[in-house]
Design a protein around this nucleic acid. Sequence first.
DNA 1: TAAGTATATTAGTAATTACTTAAATACTGA
DNA 2: TCAGTATTTAAGTAATTACTAATATACTTA
Lengths: 96, 96
Amino acid sequence: MERRAKQIAELLKVLANEYRLLILCELNKGPKTVSGLGEKMPNITQSALSQHLALLKAQGILDFSKSGQSVTYSIADHRVEEVMSVLKKHYCDKEN
Amino acid sequence: MERRAKQIAELLKVLANEYRLLILCELNKGPKTVSGLGEKMPNITQSALSQHLALLKAQGILDFSKSGQSVTYSIADHRVEEVMSVLKKHYCDKEN
DNA sequence: TAAGTATATTAGTAATTACTTAAATACTGA
DNA sequence: TCAGTATTTAAGTAATTACTAATATACTTA
């Protein structure tokens, strides 16, 4: 960990945002278009959502494909899924 | 996860720093005094280290005890240990 | 081709972070 | 009590983040 601390901190910075966590939660269930994601997150503007997606994509965490006018995002780096799963387990289950 | 996203993002923000990750790594091996931690992290000033410790303590992640002139820190919230362990597994092991 | 829809990008700004430097507090041993 | 050591706290600042508003791009359909 020692030598990787800086790199891992970078990853965690990307995860450390309410909306980016929600995006990953949704995409964990399966790929979704930008507007599909937007429907699940009514509190964020289209522009802000797009900026969060761009960041996750730039970090290699998400992949995307275009089809017609819509863009579908999916999780590319499956390691984050397991990180999410531990977070869920400890901070979301039942009486936490 | 959805309703907890904000809270989890707060936690991840605290973890998302190179030096705080190193502190947690060291304390994972066992409690250490501030100066003991400082020896393991020669690139940070004593003041900065103390501020990182204060943040981790404020979040309930660390506990501490005073004895004489020195302060010994230890991990209080064992959930973060498992988070660290997943990070280690995926981002530190072998050919990652 | 024009108008509408989906998404991305840009520029500007307020809030937050991480640091440095300096000083404060608390303990110890001569 | 004084000097030294360990640690914390406070103030100031530069860098980073997350947003809004506006505009741009790309596609579709009438």
